[in-house]
């Protein structure tokens, strides 16, 4: 287990900034409860993934450079999103190959942790569940699953909560159809994918859907709301904080 740091950066992600700030705050509070001094650089913005995946690497690099500047000190960088964390950790080094910041990007990447990964692996967090019994299901984001490999940490946290029953999706490993600009560029395919994901969520009988990525949340909860399916969806940080605070 890595040394427990005093300070950690928090990379809020653009989607959390815009649509899910409560999830970001919850992530910050979970770190603070563990005694971490959380640093939130106000100059931070987006990891650059939207441009990186859409055919605009120069634009992605420009935005990435801004993050390198804002997170320059040697603190761990905690990210409440497997997808953004995957971008920072795995794609920044390749984005800066042959650029002056190549070495900086590699060192930056080494400091990146997805939030639940950080809570489990670095902080060895123990959760005391104060909430009422509830059945939940969990959606894995593709990048949390395949780039970061942190899904077991996320689910381990949910399982620490003794009144929470985790019912797994039948196709947990299948993409929800968000894919950033994919959902806008090829909306019909995206719609078919999220339609199947919603059906999978429903068949679990869960009262709440959890995820660690706000892109997926925006997609799946938007589709459930559109279909008037009364299953709320929540970022795992917000959920955990509610359970331990109740």
């Amino acid at each position: 287990m890595p040394d427990r740091p005093d300070k950690a950066y928090f990379f809020g992600t653009c989607l959390i900034d815009l649509c899910y700030p409560q999830a970001g705050l919850a992530g910050i509070e979970l770190l603070q409860r563990e005694g971490i001094n959380v640093i939130f650089p106000q100059g931070q913005s987006c990891c650059g993934q939207p441009a990186f995946n859409s055919g605009f690497p120069a634009e992605a690099r420009a935005v990435a450079r801004q993050q390198l500047k804002c997170f320059s000190k040697d603190y761990p960088i905690v990210v409440p999103s497997g997808s953004c964390a995957g971008m920072l950790k795995h794609h920044y080094p390749e984005l800066f190959v042959g650029e002056p910041e190549a070495e900086e990007a590699r060192r930056f990447a080494d400091r990146v942790y997805e939030l639940t990964e950080f809570l489990v692996k670095v902080l060895d967090i123990h959760l005391e569940d104060r909430g009422k019994p509830i059945k939940v299901t969990w959606h894995s984001s593709c990048h949390a699953l395949r780039e970061m490999g942190v899904v077991e940490h996320s689910k381990a946290l949910v399982r620490q909560l003794r009144n929470v029953e985790l019912i797994e999706l039948q196709k947990e490993h299948e993409c929800c159809g968000f894919g950033g600009t994919f959902a806008i560029k090829l909306p019909e395919i995206s719609a078919a994918m999220v339609g199947d994901k919603v059906a999978d969520v429903r068949q679990t009988g869960a009262e709440l859907l959890l995820a660690g990525d706000c892109g997926c949340l925006l997609n799946i909860s938007g589709a459930m709301e559109y279909q008037n399916i009364p299953i709320p969806a929540k970022h795992i940080a917000e959920f955990i904080l509610e359970r331990v605070n109740d």
Partner: peptide
């Protein structure tokens, strides 16, 4: 339009995480 054919539109929060972090006095090193 493509997004909202099967989903509700994204709702933007009144205050961004940047603002909330500042209000909570989080360090901006």
């Amino acid at each position: 339009k493509g997004w909202t054919s099967v989903r509700t539109a994204p709702k933007f929060a009144k205050k961004s995480l940047h603002q909330l972090a500042k209000e909570r006095g989080l360090s901006d090193e």
